[in-house]
Amino acid sequence: MTGRAPKWIIIVVGFVGCLWIVPIIGIVATSLQTTDSIARGWWHFGENTFSLQAWRTVWQTYPLAGSLWVSAKITLAATILTMVTAPAAAYTFHYLRFPLRRLWLIIIINAFVLPQQVVIIPLFQLWRDVGLLDNMGAVIIPFVGLSYAWAVFLVKSFLEDFPKELIEAARIDGCGPIRTFTQVVLPNLISPIAACGILQFLWCWNTLLLPMLFLRSDISLTVLLARIAGTYDPNLDQQAVAAIVTAVIPLCIFLLFQKQFAAGNRVSSGGKE
């Protein structure tokens, strides 16, 4: 900004920043200490003893690797499906004319307000009736279906700034709607598609409700975390391990791509005021 930034500002922001990661430091410390030490409070670093026991126990007792794999499969499938189909839908809504276009568009982009809770009773019954419970598809389908509400809007907002001349030029060059999409529009949509992908990845990996209800044997990491915590042993150290394992991948993805958020956010809040 202007002049020199006052020191107190950096101190205040620094203090809040450090305060914000105390819980994260706490969970890491908890996972590395013995049960006795945790009972004393994990922050007594001087007196406490460190141990990898909890990590070993969790690894041996719980199907951690399996759940990691389940989470990865579900999340990747749902993310890729969204990244492939949502841009095509946004393009179609933006450039093509067809019956009921505006009605469909209004329904889809406003569905982002819907709570997940709305889908669980009907889908629970439906999956039970068609035998899809405990199948990954039971989770992937609503993950993708619910994502359209915001993903189509995000990509379409981006298209609003897309130069019309390019589309017209493609038309004059003899491209049909699909060629125009794949050859002209799609290569320029990388940043909103990436934003969609990251948001969808984080949401699918992190959410608990749907996988908890629709998966039984092959469970995802968040559900496994819930199960470990549900056993009533004093196993804070093991919960900590599970929490870290659950958080580490989305956190890495997030940190890796956090610059993308600025772009995605600019688009999604583009219609401000």
Binding site: P23, I24, G26, I27, T30, W42, L202, W205, N206, T207, L208, T222, L225, A226, A229, L236, Q239, A240, A242, A243, T246, A247, P250, L251, I253, F254, L255, F261
Partner: peptide, 14 residues
Amino acid sequence: FGISEAVAGYIWIG
């Protein structure tokens, strides 16, 4: 932002 609500819950239980 990258940490799920579920994990946040466990973190804060402690």
